[in-house]
């Protein structure tokens, strides 16, 4: 078992952990964090798998991907946080509101 593979497994673990947290927690901040953890997991997998051919020089493509991914993750997190704040202003809580009720 190579180190790279170990890293990849850890990445997978992080992904799963994040997924679990995303589903279980109700607080939005925790959900956002969970998503970020998942993202990190994926990035870890990408980075780890970059060493795929056994060459000394790792493949640059996944790295480029990770950089793009991080940019995306940051902006998504920003949006999510803004929404959370707005939602908090609106409802006073940082949780997802219940399914739509009948009346406005």
């Amino acid at each position: 078992m190579s180190t790279a593979f170990l890293y990849a497994l850890v990445g997978m673990g992080l992904f799963s952990l994040g997924l679990y947290a995303l589903i279980v927690h109700t607080h939005l901040l925790r959900k956002i964090l969970a998503l970020n953890v998942m993202g990190s997991g994926v990035f870890l997998v990408l980075v780890a798998l970059a060493k795929r051919t056994g060459e000394i020089q790792p493949d640059p493509v996944p790295h480029a991907m990770v950089i793009t991914g991080i940019v995306v993750a940051v902006s998504a997190t920003a949006l999510a946080l803004t929404l959370t704040l707005k939602l908090n202003e609106e409802t006073g809580r940082a949780e997802l509101p219940d399914e739509q009720r009948e009346s406005h």
Binding site: F15, L19, L22, L28, K31, L35, M38, G39, G41, V42, V45, L46, L49, P62, M65, G69, V72, A76, L79, A80, L83, T84, K86, L87, E90, T91, L96, P97, Q100
Partner: peptide, 28 residues
């Protein structure tokens, strides 16, 4: 704006991000 829209948006965002991440892992 408003409770329903923000809640809907948040739900949507979480689902979209989750979907994207799964997809990205697949890409990897």
């Amino acid at each position: 704006g408003g409770r329903d829209a923000l809640g809907g948006a948040m739900r949507y965002l979480l689902a979209a991000l989750l979907g994207s991440l799964a997809y990205l892992l697949g890409v990897a």
